[in-house]
Structure formats: structure tokens, C-alpha cells
Amino acid sequence: MQTGSKSGAPKDAEARRAVRPVICYPPETLPRVPMDAYKVALAGAEVTGTARVPPRQARCFRVPAGTFFRIRSLEGPQVGDLNLWAASDLSERFYSGKTRALHGTHVSTGDRLWSAFPYMRPMATVVADDLDWYGIDGDGGSVHDVIGTRCDPYTAHLLSRTQYHHCCHSNLTRALAEELELPLAEAERHVHDVLNVFMCTGFTRDTGQYFMKASPVRPGDAITFLAEIDLLGALSACPGGDCGSAHSSDAARCFPLEVEILRPENGAPAGWEAPAASGYDRSHGL
């Protein structure tokens, strides 16, 4: 955002600025999350698989609908970039922009990750978050953001003229290509804007610029989701480590992350049903 006035303010400028904001998408009208049933199912769930994500790399994982997956910090403060797709159809993928519009700039317990058009349904629900205590700090920062994109080699080259291939975009591309045996160029088309797991971010109050600060995540901290549909996921351990100083760097201290898959003891949570795709009838026009 450019600063400094380029045109004279009208006489009623302060009155115009004082107009009250209106929430675009009132959360009260969203489908209710049966959180009590989800938490009961999580309490009795057992780990059925794990994926370890090395520093500056990414790994894919699969989660059946009605089961849980948990992303955990292992040895030190580490940020992760998460992509999600419907396991049977890569065109249905996580839509960070609409998730942001529905839930806010950062997500936590009870919020959902929504899929792209025309599906527009919850892909995963946050059931537990060890960092929900953080809230919004004095800088306007919070954790688990859906406002950033992902570090990528194209922007890195634009800003610093580097040729760096451990950006999260690159890591996610390689992981998806390996998982599905795709050429890198084809896999790259499916990599999309992320949930920045554990990352602490916000916007500056004076210029509206996206900022990051050192993540408050501690070894052992985790965020846990219920998979609402069959999922293919990919998680990158960001080359910025805790993102306190850089996000495309071989100098930052980086640590591994872990993804656990957990199956509820008695099957899916009580009363749970896989969500249907959007009921909007496109025959009426797009």
C-alpha cells in the first residue's frame, strides 16, 4: 500500500472513515460444527500412520474421511505450509481466500478449511489447537494464517535475484509429483495457496503490509483436524524455520514436522456425515 496523500481530502473525510464496518459473511449462518462429538471421537482415536517432514522438504499423506490428522512440531519452532486436495480429484482443493472470508485471517478450533468452486464444502475442521491461547497480539499478529501464499522461487528471484529451490512452493511441487508420479510441470499446476501452520503473521496498521514474526510454537505443540472428505495432503517444513527473520533461507534454523493419522475407536464421530458439494444449481447461470 502506498503511503502519502496524492489528492486533497474532502471536508467530511473523518465522517467517511467513521462509517461502521459490516461483516461480509456472518458466521452464525454457517453449518453447525458438532464439536462435542468430534472431541469425543478424538479422545479415543489411535494413531494408524505417521509422516515425518524433514527440514526444507515436503511430504504427502492421505487421510480417509471421518478420521483425524495432526500436525506436530517436534524438535524446535517450525512453520509448515499445508496443501489439501480431494483424494480422488485434484481440481477440488483448499480455497484459502474463501476460508479467510468466512472465518478470518487466521484459523483455530472450530474453524473449517473450505474447498474451491464448484464444490464449496468443508474439507477439514480444526478440532484442537495447542496455540489457541495466543489470540491476537499487540501488533495484530496471530497464528495459522490464511492470508499469506507460500514462499516461492519466482518471488525470491524477483526480490533478490536468487535461484533457490527449497521454497515451500518447490517442496510441495516435488512431493506431489513423487506421490502421483507426475512431471514436475504438471504437479506445479496443482500447488495452491496454503494454510501457514504455526506461522505468526498479520498486517501492519500503517501501511497494510503482510508481516511475519517468530512463531510461538514449542516442541510438542500440535494442531488437529478432522478430515471431512477423503484427503490427499502435502506439508512443507518452511525453509524459514520459525519465520522470525526469513522464509527462503538456508541460514535459518529449521526443524522437522510430523503428521499423524488417527482413526476414531468406533469409526467416524457420532452423527458425522461426509459433506455434499455445494447445492448451487449452475443451470441458472454462473
Rank of each mutant, 00 (worst) to 15 (best):
A251I: 13
V146A: 04
H157M: 14
E260G: 03
T109E: 10
L172A: 01
L184Q: 11
S7V: 15
H169V: 06
M212K: 14
I261R: 03
G271D: 09
E75R: 14
R205V: 11
D130H: 14
P26K: 08
P264L: 00
R72V: 06
G148M: 03
G208H: 11
I223G: 13
V107Q: 01
L184C: 08
A277R: 03
D12M: 12
R56G: 00
G8R: 15
G279D: 13
G141L: 06
N83G: 00
T207G: 02
G233C: 09
P219C: 05
T224W: 02
G44P: 10
T99K: 01
F69E: 09
C254F: 05
C151M: 13
R218A: 10
D111K: 08
R253D: 15
Y38R: 02
C243I: 05
A116S: 15
L184S: 09
R263W: 02
C24A: 13
A15W: 07
F94Y: 13
P239I: 15
C238Q: 04
A274K: 14
A177R: 05
Y119F: 15
S283C: 03
D152A: 05
S236W: 00
D193A: 12
A177M: 10
H169D: 04
Y134F: 11
G285T: 01
F61S: 01
C167I: 11
E186T: 13
S215K: 02
S115V: 08
G8C: 12
I223D: 08
H247K: 12
R218H: 07
W272T: 10
R189S: 11
K6P: 07
R59Y: 00
A252P: 03
A41N: 03
S248Q: 09
A185T: 08
E258Q: 15
R174P: 04
T67S: 13
G240Q: 07
F225W: 13
I229W: 07
L262Y: 10
S278W: 06
